[in-house]
Computed example of a mutant assay.
Amino acid sequence: MSSYYLDLIVQGALYALVLFSVITWVLILAKGVQHYRLGKRDKQFTKQFWSASTLDAASALASDASPKSRLANVGFAALHVSESGDASSDLEHSWDRQELLERHLRQQIQKEYQSLESGLAVLASIGSTAPFVGLFGTVFGIIHALGAIGKSGSASIDVVAGPIGEALIATGVGIAVAVPAVLAFNFYVRRLKVTAAELDNYATDFVNLAQKNGFRVTRPATKAAPQTARPASAPQQGAYA
């Protein structure tokens, strides 16, 4: 293999590692912003929820701004369905009230888990493959150095310094890309487990509150749509003399 193609392979490995590094830091920043915003909104909603006087009053607070608020929305919707549905009408309403509520909460927790889990597989893949990509560049850099030695018939430092330097750079870049990816993956997996545990605890509290309330929640009153004023009818011809 010619030195041109060897250089091309080493440079390709370096460009791939640079791309991996960009993806890693974009995901780190994106996941950090995501967890910060959701954590802040969850704290606000939790404070409002537990400050409500009754479960009916809390149903009017639910919104779609945080995982807990979406979980509450699903819980209240399940209670409304179980209250209005006929047990003999279809399979959707054939569940017990508590079973229906728990099933909807479990499904929503899985959706929130999948949303927070997005991007972590990419971090794990980069963290596990980046060192091997760097090693791949290192191998071809050494092959380039050996080829240069064979052509020149000398193993002096000026002959092997360039190819060996490229090989070492590829190894170092591979490690530098892998370390942040692995650390970020472990950190966000830990955050994901903490968030999932908080959602499980909140779902348990929600079921207990619904049980005390007889699994019945009054639907929040909807605001009536404002009526637009009817335009005055044009006077008919001949109405005035």
Rank of each mutant, 00 (worst) to 15 (best):
L6K: 15
L6P: 07
L6I: 09
D7R: 14
D7Q: 11
L8P: 05
L8E: 09
L8A: 15
I9S: 05
I9L: 13
Q11N: 12
Q11W: 15
Q11F: 15
G12Q: 04
G12L: 14
A13H: 03
A13I: 00
L14N: 06
A16M: 13
L17V: 03
L17R: 09
L19S: 11
L19V: 15
F20S: 08
V22H: 04
V22W: 07
I23Q: 06
T24N: 05
W25T: 03
V26N: 06
L27N: 05
L27V: 10
I28N: 08
I28M: 10
L29G: 10
A30F: 08
A30E: 15
G32M: 03
G32R: 11
V33T: 13
Q34F: 15
Q34C: 05
H35M: 07
H35I: 04
Y36P: 00
R37I: 09
L38D: 14
G39W: 05
K40H: 08
K40P: 00
K40D: 11
K43E: 14
Q44Y: 04
F45D: 00
T46V: 10
K47Y: 03
K47I: 12
Q48V: 07
Q48D: 15
Q48R: 15
F49A: 12
F49T: 04
S51A: 14
S53W: 10
S53A: 14
T54V: 01
T54M: 09
T54G: 03
L55P: 02
D56P: 13
A57F: 08
A57R: 12
A58R: 05
S59V: 02
S59M: 01
A60M: 08
A60T: 06
A60H: 10
L61C: 02
A62K: 10
S63Y: 00
S63D: 09
S63P: 02
S63V: 06
A65T: 13
S66E: 02
P67C: 10
K68E: 11
S69Q: 08
S69N: 07
R70E: 01
L71W: 03
L71Q: 05
L71M: 13
L71K: 03
A72I: 08
N73D: 08
G75C: 07
G75Y: 02
F76A: 01
A78I: 01
A78V: 04
L79T: 01
H80G: 12
H80E: 04
V81H: 12
V81M: 11
S82W: 00
S82H: 00
S82K: 00
S84H: 13
S84I: 04
S84Y: 03
G85S: 12
A87F: 05
A87R: 14
S88L: 08
S88H: 07
S89A: 15
S89R: 11
S89I: 12
D90W: 00
L91H: 06
L91D: 06
E92N: 06
E92Y: 01
E92T: 11
H93E: 01
H93F: 14
S94R: 15
S94M: 03
S94P: 02
W95P: 00
W95C: 02
D96M: 12
D96L: 14
D96T: 11
D96G: 09
D96K: 09
R97I: 02
Q98N: 08
Q98K: 13
L100P: 03
L100W: 11
L101H: 00
E102T: 10
R103E: 11
R103N: 08
R106P: 04
Q107I: 07
Q107R: 15
Q108I: 00
